Amino acid sequence: MKALIIDDERLARNELRRLLENFPKIEVVGEAANADEAIKMVNELRPDLLFLDIQMPGKNGFELLEALEDDTIPEVIFTTAYDEYALKAFEYNALDYILKPIDLPRLSEAVHRVFEELDRKHDHDSISERKMLGENDQVFIKDGEKCWFVKLGKVRLFESMGNYVRLHFDDQKPLVLKSLNALEERLDPISFFRANRKHIINLQWIEKIEPWFSGGLLVTLRGSGEKIEISRRQAIRFKDMLSL
């Protein structure tokens, strides 16, 4: 597994690299002192894992992830001296959040979690290819004690909530234990569109489209009135896909 260490403190990078020598399956392929350096290295080296500080000069760790192309985002372990960003970190699907100073047992726990996630993805990929799910397919959903058997065409919005996805249909909003990326792989792109990092929208439920900041778009969903931003990058795809 190729890893990249991103931290503005040289001593912190050196110490983490030293600790990672205890894990021969992880190869540190580079270090970056700021987000701009890191973005270039991610695009060139295509690492599998980032050890990412949050507070850095220029872009912070969250802004770095937002600047990456969706298909180049590696797994992420945040390494920081601040505990107040933990909730936000998991909104970015981080595998772990380690507070400095980092010790070997805590790092070992995080690395174990990384390999568990890799095994899970490998098992998923090893399953025979499943058919793409379209708006006419029905799916079983269980959230706590409640169960639904719902046609996907009724689901207007999929919303990432860390390691879960919230489905919006009728007046229901159940959670399922699945990442938005994994769900996107199963959904038919003719009907379902990845609007941004947190949302997939059902194109049949769009009622209104408006220009938005920085070249993005703002869509209003029919019935619910929910407003979802289509990011600038995705807005380009959206226009290409739906234009004559």
Rank of each mutant, 00 (worst) to 15 (best):
K88Y: 06
N181D: 14
F193M: 05
W205P: 00
K25G: 15
A32Y: 13
L177D: 10
R46S: 15
K146P: 00
I39L: 15
H124F: 07
R166W: 00
D71F: 12
R186A: 14
K59Q: 11
Y82N: 07
Y97A: 04
S243Y: 05
L133D: 13
P101E: 13
L19A: 03
A235L: 00
E63C: 08
D103E: 08
E145A: 06
R186Q: 12
L187S: 07
F23D: 01
N14T: 14
A32D: 13
G162C: 10
R46C: 11
A35F: 03
K25C: 11
P47K: 09
M41F: 15
I201W: 14
I54W: 01
I206E: 03
N60E: 10
W212N: 09
V29T: 05
E9F: 03
I206D: 10
S128Y: 01
N34G: 03
L244R: 02
I77F: 12
N22E: 11
K178W: 14
G144E: 06
R130E: 14
Q138K: 15
A89R: 02
N43I: 12
N34P: 01
A235M: 06
K239Y: 04
E226D: 15
V219Q: 05
A35Y: 08
F78R: 01
V76R: 02
E117P: 00
E69T: 12
V76I: 09
M241P: 03
S128W: 00
D7S: 03
N181K: 10
K40A: 15
E9P: 00
M241D: 03
L68V: 09
S231E: 03
L16Q: 01
M1H: 07
D71L: 04
E159D: 11
S108R: 08
E210V: 13
D48S: 05
E69R: 06
L16A: 10
N163H: 02
L95K: 00
